[in-house]
């Protein structure tokens, strides 16, 4: 083996080993928070407010671009580097195929800026769905949906937007708790049923 080929191999091996042992020990625990600190301003059946936001992967994502193609799960989480949020999105990564079978994609959104989100998602080992920054103007999309909290973070909220762009499921969850995955699947399955 040529030395030039051996060095990248070592790097690759090192990165695999590192990724297996890296854990998120740098999380900030905000303690128990007021469960909900906003008033949702959208309703089921309404058209979901459109938005365009920058993503961690580069470029921008526009909600209405999914119209006629896929259902969209908007997953707002309050803040990067916090325990419950860090223990929510990796699960959505794990079930990307199952969401795909139900014609749905996840868009993750927080009010953090892109560099912060980049560092955080890397520490989680990467995510396989777009992560969007609602940082500037600060929390504008969260505010439009009525889920911007008084401290400038967003609620832990899930919205399912169907292929027509209508809101079909809203769960502004207790910020201290993780929403059960089955609720999301049930909502997506009901969309499948109503399409048949």
């Amino acid at each position: 083996m040529k030395p030039i080929g051996f060095i990248p191999l070592l790097f690759l091996l090192g990165s695999v080993l590192f990724s297996e042992t890296t854990e998120m020990d740098s999380l900030y625990d905000p303690g128990e928070l007021k469960p909900v600190d906003s008033r949702v301003s959208v309703r089921i059946g309404e058209m979901a407010p459109d938005f365009t936001l920058p993503t961690v992967g580069g470029g921008e994502v526009k909600l209405s671009d999914f119209r006629g193609k896929q259902h969209v799960i908007l997953s707002f989480v309050p803040a990067a580097w916090t325990p419950v949020c860090s223990a929510q999105w990796p699960g959505y990564s794990l079930v990307k195929d199952e969401f795909g079978e139900l014609d749905a994609v996840v868009l993750g959104i927080t009010v953090d800026n892109v560099p912060t989100l980049h560092a955080w998602t890397e520490a989680m080992g990467g995510l396989n769905f777009p992560v969007l920054s609602d940082f500037f103007p600060h929390g504008a999309v969260s505010k439009r949906y009525g889920i911007l909290r008084s401290d400038g973070t967003s609620e832990r909220a899930l919205f399912v937007v169907d292929k027509e762009g209508r809101l079909r499921f809203i769960d502004v969850h207790d910020i201290n708790l993780r929403p059960p995955l089955e609720d999301l699947f049930r909502a997506l399955e009901s969309l499948q049923e109503s399409n048949h």
């Binding site: 854990e23 990796p90 794990l94 989680m124 080992g125 995955l181």
Partner: peptide, 10 residues
């Protein structure tokens, strides 16, 4: 384990 935990998945 935790369904949502990356290390558990790995």
């Amino acid at each position: 384990f935790d369904f949502y935990c990356p290390t558990c998945q790995k």
